[in-house]
Design a protein around this nucleic acid. Structure first.
Length: 596
RNA sequence: GCCCCGGUAGUUCAACGGAUAGAAUAGAAGUUUCCUAAACUUUUGAUAGCAGUUCGAUUCUGCUCCGGGGUACCA
């Protein structure tokens, strides 16, 4: 049982005996005492002031006295206004540390066969352009969320739905046909996803030009011009032929998609994310169509005069939603219905989580409702993990306008930045080329990942390409550096062959207690991150932990401490801290180096 | 128009309804015969506005102002 639980239960008993108040222990959440007051844990006593009919100070004093008399872990207390500050028996902390040391996978809960099966969908790229910073946030959040849910005792399936068909990919295909001159990734010396992206931009350039000319020549509106544009007509025609499984179109499509997958594969690998099961829209959209037609028969959907199929959701406060175009082709929503169906066929999923940007909040509201009406019993309970946009100083990133921060470029910049900093600081002296590269990779990506994950996922965040991501302060490298320093101490300790001593009777100093207390909070932090779907909670926790370690490290000697018991306590602290840091960073998908 | 989300130091981010709103960075000043100074210490600086609920509001409610997103036969 954790110290928080011990105190909570003690307080629950105390208020029952003293005031006859029934308060469940899990509703009493002791907080860490602010550093300007004496104590380790603080209980707010205002909730019982009414029942006690006494002043907050009196209530605090009475509960405090009760705890000192009845709870061995409580040494003494003080009361400030309605705040009861408890000082825990110092040697109690040694047993807490011992417990952490003795627990393998401290903070993690292993899943069993009966654990809930959670499917996390993330990444879900379109195959017409390379990944950018927004996708990076998505990928890191999805991966981390999956790791955190695993750590909370769930069985997790990571999945990806690749949007490999649709008008967007036809645009790239058409542009390649028209202006590509048979170019391939090999011939161009370019990653396949980048090459395809170039053609997508090229299509848009010609298309815009065409629309402009049409508007001028025929004096029609922009919308009309877009409809009439020969390029767009050709793209639509290509999509129609694709749906008819025209061999030539399919062959081109397969070739160009394979280029993109090779490119994505490289990016995913460097980013360190992976998937247990990948779905392709080209396999799922027909399932969706079938479900929609089924819904049409059941009267859940209606067909308009032009042949298009709609769902009327106005009774639920939403709009009419298109599900099949007048030419019979399917839209995004249709495909998501089909994908959901296949997934639940493939796995006995208890919970489905979609990691998708908040610009699609409405989409998921509609999807949830539609799945429910189509008879999917999980529809109502699907979770849209809605994260904020990564904005640039000029605003939103737009692929077609080229104002995007490319994922591959950014990773490369971060790694070379890390290499430079290391070199300047002389950290790489005496290391091999391979070691240098390994460390630069770990640190550069660590900086990028931590930068994106430390922010509350729900909020929009800003990335300024002109200011490179920092390596000092509240950053990934700061945490990695602390880890490397601890590992260095532990290596030296091993070399010195120090004899371990029993530290259970040592009264730890203030910094040591603060560190143990923070370490002990790790399991609860993991649970909270899982409950609230927030990697940021882990990130902020690890930062707080290493900051406390650094203060301890600065103020006290470890290896040079003469008292064997104290030295053992400190080495145990180092060991426990390094393990929690590594585990915590692992939950974020961030590696930690042995030296840097 | 309608619907959602946000507004906290110069900047980027924190704060289960709890104490004097924390960090980082930028600025100022310090710490290295000692386990890695990518560190540590000190210091300047903020809740958009107005009401309300509460012992207590950055947090909950309403209104105003300012941003962002959605409302597509795009995904």
């Amino acid at each position: 049982m954790s110290i928080d639980q011990i105190i909570a239960q003690g307080v629950a008993k105390a208020v029952k005996e003293l005031y006859g108040a029934e308060t469940p222990a899990d509703q009493i959440v002791p907080q860490t005492t602010r550093k300007e007051f004496e104590g380790n844990l603080t209980v707010v006593v205002f909730p019982w002031v009414k029942a006690a009919r006494k002043s907050p100070e009196q209530v605090g004093t009475e509960i405090g006295n009760w705890l000192v008399d009845n709870e061995p872990a409580v040494d003494r207390f003080n009361v400030v206004k309605g705040f009861l500050n408890l000082v825990i028996e110092p040697t109690f902390w040694c047993s807490v540390l011992r417990h952490i040391e003795d627990t393998t996978d401290f903070g993690l809960t292993a899943a069993t066969e009966n654990s809930p099966l959670v499917m996390v969908e993330y990444s879900s790229p379109n195959t017409n352009k390379p990944l950018h910073l927004g996708h990076v946030r998505n990928n890191l959040l999805g991966f981390s969320l999956a790791e955190i849910l695993k750590a909370c005792g769930n069985r997790v399936v990571k999945t990806n739905i690749v949007n490999d068909r649709g008008i967007h990919i036809c645009k790239s295909m058409l542009a390649w046909q028209k202006w590509g001159d048979g170019v391939t990734p090999e011939k161009a010396g370019k990653k396949g996803d980048h090459l395809i992206g170039d053609f997508y931009v090229l299509f848009d350039k010609h298309f815009k030009q065409e629309v402009k000319e049409l508007m001028e020549r025929e004096g029609i509106s922009e919308d009309e011009a877009k409809q009439k544009s020969p390029l767009m007509t050709e793209a639509r025609e290509m999509l129609r032929r694709w749906e008819e499984k025209d061999p030539d179109v399919r062959k081109l499509w397969e070739m160009m998609n394979s280029w993109v997958y090779d490119g994505f594969g490289d990016t995913y690998k460097r980013l360190g994310v992976d998937f247990d099961k990948i779905y392709y829209e080209s396999d799922t959209y027909l399932e969706g169509k079938a479900k929609v037609l089924e819904g049409l028969e059941k009267g859940i959907m209606t067909r308009d005069a032009d042949g298009s199929v709609w769902a009327d959701l106005t009774d639920a406060g939403l709009d009419r939603k298109l599900l099949l175009r007048s030419d019979g082709t399917s839209v995004y929503m249709t495909q998501d219905i089909g994908t959901a169906k296949l997934r639940f066929q493939d796995y006995p999923i208890d919970k489905m989580i979609y990691v998708v940007g908040n610009e699609q909040n409405y989409h998921f509201q509609v999807l949830s409702l539609l799945l429910d009406r189509l008879g999917f019993k999980w529809g109502k309970d699907l979770v849209h993990f809605s994260y904020g946009m990564v904005e640039l100083p000029e605003g939103k990133m737009k692929s077609r306008e080229g104002t995007v921060v490319d994922a591959d470029d950014l990773m490369e910049e971060m790694v070379s930045g890390a290499r430079e900093v290391s070199r300047e600081l002389g950290k790489l002296d005496g290391l091999t080329e391979a070691e240098t590269e390994e460390i630069s990779e770990i640190v550069g990506l660590g900086a990028l990942k931590y930068f994106l994950l430390k922010v509350d996922p729900r909020k929009n965040m800003l990335f300024n390409p002109k200011e490179s991501i920092d390596f000092n302060g509240n950053t990934g490298p700061f945490i990695q550096y602390t880890y490397a320093r601890i590992r260095s101490v532990l290596r030296k300790a091993a070399e010195m062959n120090l004899t371990a001593a029993d530290y259970s009777a040592v009264a730890p100093n203030e910094k040591e207690i603060a560190l143990i207390q923070t370490l002990a909070d790790f399991p609860a932090t993991v649970q909270e991150a899982g409950r609230t779907y927030s990697p940021a909670i882990i990130a902020n926790y690890v930062y707080e932990l290493v900051k406390q370690y650094n203060q301890f490290y600065h103020d006290y000697s470890i290896l040079k401490e003469d008292d064997a018991a104290v030295r053992s306590l400190r080495l145990a602290l180092c060991d426990a801290t390094s393990r929690v840091v590594a585990t915590g960073m692992g939950l974020l998908g961030i590696r930690v180096p042995e030296r840097m």
